[in-house]
Simulated assay, not measured.
Amino acid sequence: MVKVAIAGGSGHIASEIVDVLVATQRHEILILSRKDPSAAEAVSGVSWAKADYGDKEQLTGVLSGVHTVLSFVGGTQDPGSVIQKNLIDASIAAGVKRFAPSEWSSSSIEELPWYAEKAVVRTYLEEINKEKKMIEYTLFQPGLIVDYLAPPGTTKHLQTLEILIDFPNRRAIDIDGKDGFFTLTTMNDVANVVALAIEYEGEWPVIGGINGINTSTSKVLEIGAKIQGGKPFDITLVKEEDVRADVFQTPWCPMFKSPDFSEEQLKHFSKVILRGCLLSFLCGSWVVSDAWNRLLPDYKFTNPEEFLLKAWEGKA
């Protein structure tokens, strides 16, 4: 049994992982929160601590006795990666053995400008360990979490996202004449692998790919048609050169949702995300390694196609 601290533990992905860790009944789970812990929901096997992410000394005290830190703080929550850098520094000062930065998605940030902070943290960890290993870490990278394509309620905490492959409305946006490639992995597999990784006795791999299956846009569209009884999707095709020049038009756009942005900002950012996803699928940014698959050969991964067919059965 070890003590695991979760930074940003109220997020959807973090909550799924916390549930699995609690269910193992093998670890002490500590969730770091900016809020007063007394306001937190009481969960068996979970404790809360107030964390001042701007105060490394306070953070070091909170992390005393912690074995592994999992971070889910990133993006717009952490401009300049100040929080994660402080978390890393405090983890080292507190004697934490393992750290997982806020990754949980693609292997590369090429064509994904909203993931720029991931590169900052990756470089920071590399520099810290350059001369001497100060902390063991892994970049948990599952590619696209397939649960986002499933009907609402399929997964306890994750909410269905509007993306360019829209299963509920049988439509998609794709680049004409090109096929995008990516990795699909179920949320349950991600959570289970993290739980197994915490107990893994060997050294964590720096590149921690969690690979359900490598697939393509055309294959996922075939799965969607199969779910819909053979009915093909309504596909809007755009030219790659227009996407790169940012002059393409589509009859609809998957809408990004965030309480931190105004309506106009959401419209702009949604277009940025659509462009980035179209281009990042082409360059393979979402194709991840199978590092954890190889280190955990006894773990049986869920086939994402079977997962989707079962999730949509009777609901299409």
Rank of each mutant, 00 (worst) to 15 (best):
A5D: 01
I6H: 00
A7R: 00
A7D: 03
G9L: 03
S10F: 01
S10E: 00
I13D: 00
S15M: 01
S15P: 02
E16C: 13
E16Q: 05
V20C: 09
T24I: 06
L32F: 01
P37K: 10
S38P: 03
A39N: 12
S44E: 12
S44R: 00
V46C: 00
W48S: 05
A49K: 09
A51D: 05
E57I: 12
E57P: 07
Q58G: 15
L59W: 07
G61L: 11
G61K: 15
G65L: 10
G65I: 06
T68I: 10
S71N: 14
G74C: 11
G74K: 13
D78H: 15
D78M: 11
G80E: 08
I83D: 05
K85C: 04
I88W: 03
A90V: 09
S91E: 02
G95N: 14
G95V: 14
A100C: 13
S102A: 12
S102W: 06
E103R: 05
S106M: 07
S106I: 03
S107Q: 14
K118L: 06
A119V: 10
R122D: 13
T123I: 08
L125F: 05
I128T: 09
N129M: 02
K130W: 10
K132P: 00
K133D: 13
M134E: 15
E136N: 03
T138F: 02
Q141Y: 02
P142G: 09
G143D: 08
I145V: 14
P151K: 05
G153N: 01
T154M: 01
T154F: 06
T155L: 09
K156Q: 08
H157P: 03
L158A: 04
T160D: 04
I163T: 10
I163L: 06
N169T: 15
R170T: 15
I173N: 01
I175V: 13
D176F: 08
K178Y: 14
F181M: 12
M187I: 10
N188W: 04
N188G: 08
N188H: 07
D189T: 08
D189M: 10
V190M: 07
A191C: 06
A195P: 07
L196A: 11
I198N: 06
W204V: 15
V206D: 08
G208E: 03
I210S: 05
G212V: 11
G212D: 11
I213H: 14
N214F: 13
T215Y: 10
T215K: 02
S218W: 12
S218C: 13
S218F: 11
K226H: 10
I235P: 03
T236K: 04
K239E: 11
D242E: 07
R244P: 01
R244H: 01
A245C: 02
D246S: 06
F248Y: 04
T250D: 00
T250F: 03
P251G: 01
W252A: 00
C253D: 04
S258F: 05
S262N: 11
S262H: 09
E263L: 10
K271P: 04
V272Y: 02
G276K: 03
S280H: 01
F281Y: 14
F281C: 02
G284I: 04
S289H: 04
A291N: 13
W292Q: 01
N293K: 08
N293V: 15
R294L: 02
R294V: 03
L295D: 09
P297M: 07
Y299M: 09
K300P: 12
T302I: 11
E305N: 15
K315L: 15
